[in-house]
């Protein structure tokens, strides 16, 4: 046997197992199938195939990736509790700090979306104190800012985004929203002094002037009754009419301020959903 033939034989012997092993990894194919379903937004079938993969994956090679993808599918389908369950499973099976961090942030993002922001803050605080993630402080603050947005705390959101250089757009937006928001306490306070002023402050001029009118009318009748020594009349008009409208004016001022604030927040959230290009929960 000459040298060339020997080389041919050795090559043949070496190549056989590669072909066999490479061509027949059905777990990899299964994972790819699930990923294809996910890419086509067919989340139900993606979950089915991933669950199948996890069920048969005795070597537990796909525990992290498959659980993570199931979590993503559930998140896309709006099943947030299931998403958190699978992200947690992925986190348990993550072998590197980078992956643990990724899953924890996924859990934070789902908590932000379902407005369980207290849980999001708790996880973010634990990440901040974890030495393994010291270089992630900007990212942690980024998601903390989002958690503040979804807690309707625009002031803290702006302050948090201000700590990150790359979050200038979000900082500006949250600052703007915070400045536009009406102070519920102030609306109520000025309504205590001048009935209807709180409504006028929130831009509800008609309601403000009507409220002022009712209060002046019944206040006038109350004073007139007392001035004419008709004490019973005075007490009754004051109690059942004047105070009723006065209390209504306070409630109205508070409600209008809250409603307007909700409109402003919703408008900002709509903008973030449709126009903002950066990472969103």
């Amino acid at each position: 046997m000459n040298f060339v033939t020997k080389i041919q034989h050795i090559t043949f012997i070496l190549v056989i197992p590669f072909f066999l092993l490479w061509a027949q990894d059905s777990f990899k194919e299964q994972f790819q199938l699930a990923k294809n379903f996910y890419a086509k937004e067919n989340y139900f079938d993606a979950i089915t195939e991933l669950k199948r993969l996890l069920f048969f994956d005795n070597e537990e090679k796909y525990l992290f990736e498959a659980n993570d993808l199931v979590g993503q599918c559930y998140k896309q389908g709006g099943k947030f509790s299931d998403a958190i369950r699978y992200f947690t499973l992925a986190e348990i099976n993550a072998k590197y700090p980078e992956r643990i961090y990724k899953e924890k942030i996924e859990i934070v993002r789902v908590n932000i979306l379902r407005r369980t922001t207290q849980s999001a803050f708790r996880i973010l605080n634990s990440l901040e104190t974890d030495n393994r993630f010291k270089d992630k402080i900007d990212d942690i603050n980024y998601w903390r800012g989002w958690a503040y947005i979804f807690s309707d705390d625009w002031e803290n959101a702006a302050a948090t985004f201000a700590k990150i250089d790359s979050a200038y757009q979000l900082q500006k937006l949250t600052e703007k929203v915070n400045n536009e928001l009406y102070s519920v306490g102030f609306a109520k306070a000025i309504s205590y002094i001048i009935p209807g002023a709180g409504q006028i402050y929130t831009g509800e001029y008609l309601s403000g002037f009507i409220s002022l009118g009712w209060n002046v009318l019944w206040g006038y009748y109350t004073v007139k009754a007392f001035a004419a020594d008709r004490i019973f009349d005075g007490v009754m008009i004051a109690n059942f009419l004047f105070l009723r409208f006065y209390r209504g004016n306070l409630q109205n001022a508070e409600n209008f301020a809250e409603e307007k604030n909700l409109e402003i927040s919703n408008e900002a959230l709509r903008y973030l959903q449709n126009e903002y290009d950066g990472l969103k929960p």
């Binding site: 056989i16 066999l20 059905s26 777990f27 199948r52 993969l53």
Partner: peptide, 15 residues
């Protein structure tokens, strides 16, 4: 070939 097939079967499953 036999050993490779055995090994490959570990990675192969008919779902």
């Amino acid at each position: 070939l036999f050993a490779s097939i055995l090994l490959a079967q570990e990675k192969q499953i008919d779902f």
